[in-house]
């Protein structure tokens, strides 16, 4: 694709961001990343378990030249999110941070007030900030004003595979935003991603839809095709929706002639 995604001053050929959770192994994850074409991947910060070597997921991704986007998942408030961001920057020497603050474990819906507070501090500290938020156009503008690198509104709750429940709000966000819009969470099928790109999303973040698929590599490839189709359709310009029909063949004139 010739139209590149630009995030925080960096250009990417792919418009997919891969969430690295729920994969059986780092090897499958790396292959899925490759099939999806994604050049950006998220990960979480945790207290180390010396018996557990799941951090080995990072090496193959770095070898592939993937841009790492650590997140603050697990943070219940702004203070914890800021601490997680600082730890991630110290560990990875990466200043990108996906700010996630979701105290509610049932729906994992992001806390807008704590997220905003965390973003305000992290932007001032020089982080490239990517807030995960509900699809709230007003909040998006407030975040834009304080200097976030993009906004990441949700389509539906994390891992729910419900697709774009927030579609009408996402459209407003995309129309009004001056920073890239990454649709995050809830994308369950390639058709959801196609839809997201058709309405003008700059990027989509996918985790469960690929990680929980029967054939993860095939699904990763399907999402790769979805981003291409959706983005191309957006660039091509979709036909307007109307209430009545629009003839596509000169059938009416022919029938009138026959009736005479």
């Amino acid at each position: 694709m010739t139209d590149k995604l630009t995030l925080a001053g960096k250009s990417f050929d792919s418009r997919l961001i891969i969430g690295t959770g729920k994969y059986a192994s780092g090897e499958i994850l790396a292959k899925a990343c490759k099939e999806s074409g994604a050049q950006i991947a998220t990960m979480a910060v945790k207290r180390i378990d010396t018996q557990d070597h799941t951090d080995e997921i990072i090496s193959p991704l770095l070898d592939m030249g993937i841009q790492l986007m650590p997140n603050t998942s697990g943070a219940k408030n702004a203070k914890e999110a800021i601490f997680a961001a600082q730890l991630a920057r110290e560990a990875l020497e990466v200043d990108w941070i996906k700010v996630e603050v979701h105290p509610d474990v049932k729906y994992l819906l992001p806390d807008p007030i704590e997220t905003f507070k965390a973003c305000e501090v992290l932007c001032k500290e020089g982080f490239k900030v990517f807030p995960y938020i509900n699809a709230d156009p007003v909040l998006c503008k407030r975040l834009e004003d304080i200097g976030v690198s993009a906004v990441m509104p949700l389509g539906s709750p994390i891992g729910s595979a419900r697709g774009l429940d927030t579609l009408s709000m996402l459209k407003i966000i995309i129309r009004e935003s001056h920073v890239p819009v990454i649709i995050d969470a809830g994308i369950g099928a390639p058709s959801d991603a196609v839809k997201a790109f058709e309405i003008g999303a700059d990027a989509c973040m996918i985790n469960t839809a690929i990680a929980a698929a029967g054939d993860q590599l095939k699904m990763a490839r399907a999402f790769n095709l979805a981003q291409e189709a959706g983005r191309m359709a957006y660039k091509a310009g979709l036909a307007d929706k109307i209430e009545t029909s629009r003839a596509t063949s000169p059938m009416e004139a022919f029938l009138k002639e026959a009736m005479k």
Partner: peptide, 24 residues
């Protein structure tokens, strides 16, 4: 990290080590 060599632990300190793990 650059301060680790000169940072000496003392009785009762709380030390937490973090790493990056899979996550979305």
């Amino acid at each position: 990290k650059k301060n680790w060599e000169n940072f000496f632990l003392q009785e009762g300190m709380t030390v937490d080590i973090f790493n990056l793990v899979a996550g979305g």
